[in-house]
Amino acid sequence: MKLKNVSRYLSPYVYIVPAIAVFVLFLFFPFIKTIYLSLFKTNKMGQAKLFVGGGNYSDLFSSASFFNSLFVTAIFVLIVVSVSMLLGLITAILCNQSFPGIRIFSTAYALPMAIASSSAAMIFKIMLHPTIGIINKLLGLHTNWISDPRYALVCVALLSAWLNSGINFLYFSAGLSNIDNTLYERASVDGANSAQKFFRLTLPGLSPIMFYTLVVNIIQAFQAFGQVKVLTMGGPGESTNLIVYSIYRDAFFNYRFGSAAAQSVILFMVIMILTLCMFHLEKKGVHY
């Protein structure tokens, strides 16, 4: 009888063991290991050798390169999030009509999400080439887009924005289809023009999906890596040395796994604080 009770008590937990095991192995363990490593100096194999406590963190906060990384990342996130959301929103609104061939446009606008960031970066590299690139040919310029510190970050950010715009298009399309068409009809009879309908109906109606998209986009932008690796390798100088690329460089070029782990923890903290702030602000600006 007692054994039966015990098995009844334990059986629900048995069902969640596989999921928990995967989470522990691939999420919790690396996460805790990263925090652990951030407190140590490591050898070239990434093994913790010397406990330094907050030493790695204090080194980072006195490093101009780290602050440059944070600054560059902030600019990058700002451009990527604003441009990709704007692109997604505009394309979704354009495709929220019904006319022949609409599916071709929808597919074209959603396509970037199906392209690997490194492949897109390769294509952009050719397009931005100073002599054979189509961008210079079209604009009649001879600018070295990727090698010029003034343009490199913008180029990488615009590529990332275009890549993210595909999934944003899908999110916004779903959001738009959720807005009852009768509301637009009522607004028309009420006397609202197109701009009034957009600002007074569409934007508030999209606010829940817009909030979700904003959070996802910010997290995605902070984690951009492939396009930087292929397009600029963090350069020229450190003009595109985003924090994730800086972590990669510290860990796998300089073999400073402790410092890289500390940067990862700081990145985690930044994203977490930003997300919490946004969830706090959500109550004010999001209409459900």
Binding site: T182, E185, S188, G191, L201, S207, H287
Partner: peptide, 29 residues
Amino acid sequence: VPQKRDLAMVFQSYALYPHLTVYENIAFS
């Protein structure tokens, strides 16, 4: 266009703007 016909319409589904208060719904037009 409907905006210029100067008519007012009540819909079967009421078509109340879900994000606006009753006051703002009435005041919309």
